[in-house]
Design a protein around this nucleic acid. Structure first.
Lengths: 158, 158
DNA sequence: CACACTCAGTTCCTTCAGGGAACTAAGCTA
DNA sequence: TAGCTTAGTTCCCTGAAGGAACTGAGTGTG
């Protein structure tokens, strides 16, 4: 965990990091997304310390990203599945994959490919404007104070 | 820094985290993006330890995300600016903002708004398929092994 | 010309999180 | 009854984060 608590900052990036920014957490979400749902399988796949994994899963369940769901009564066993909140965070991971494929994959190429089910093509995500539908990258926007910004922080944007 | 080095993992999420996943790093990139470019300004705005900030900036420059550029000869002063690699990472942060606005902003609403310059609307980013242009969310894709995936890791995807 | 000020860090110390291995415990299986 | 599987918990050690103080180059001010 970061020592500084990002959850209280008036910034959606900081708050997202407070939920899913701790070391290993994005990789845990990725694994659950691709169907690795049990404690031991996650631990084996990631090579993460069991202590840290237990901590992360507890935090993600408390935050509403994962649900701890029994899949057997006797013996009592359970697995972790993504909630709607968790699934939508995978969209962020897909943006990270698009960036990582472009800038960190090197000669070998992307380790994993995504096929868009509806069009059948191998593709990556591209950020589009929710209003007009056109491509919208970081250079195409102006940043403005929003309703959730405390008054004493507004001037910092100028 | 994470003790475990994510850079060697055959996963673009892990590799992205190795570049920009350390605590504070995404917030440093956000700040540089919105025009906070100098060491002292970054330190003041974030409330980060000067030691950690120096470390993060060094790492980001070494990774090619930031450029340390002199803006004055006498006295020798410099500022940090995003490279192309860094600017494109801001697209990932915008996806994080879209998610954070939806799931962590609460009653008060988003602290910051983005206006798409070309259409003039307040908007957020939406993931679209780079091939067909339609919306493409995490539930709309199939994951397949790519060329950069080591042979001994392929079976884990099934 | 001494003093304060700005910028950009570095150094030092303390605390707490991550890594790793061993241990626990419930229930199943041979 | 001995061992296996699943899902953790406990313990100790190391190293990263926080915080405050210090450094050092250059500038402007009385």
């Amino acid at each position: 965990m970061q020592r500084t608590d990002f959850a209280q900052m008036p910034c959606s990036i900081a708050r997202s990091l407070a939920v899913a920014g701790e070391p290993w957490t994005p990789l845990v979400i990725r694994d659950v997304y691709v169907g690795i749902n049990r404690f031991d399988d996650l631990q084996r796949d990631l090579g993460i310390s069991r202590k840290v994994l237990a901590e992360r899963l507890r935090h993600l369940v408390a935050a509403g990203m994962l649900e701890r769901r029994p899949y057997s009564e006797r013996p009592p066993r359970h697995e972790y599945v993504l909630t709607t909140m968790g699934s939508e965070f995978v969209d962020v991971l897909m943006a990270m994959v698009a960036w990582g494929d472009r800038w960190t994959a090197g000669e070998a190429g992307p380790p994993v490919l995504y096929r868009h089910r509806s069009c059948g093509q191998i593709a990556h995500v591209e950020p589009h404007c929710s209003a007009c539908g056109e491509v919208m990258r970081s250079g195409d926007v102006d940043v403005e104070p929003g309703p959730g910004l405390p008054a004493d922080a507004v001037e910092q944007l100028q």
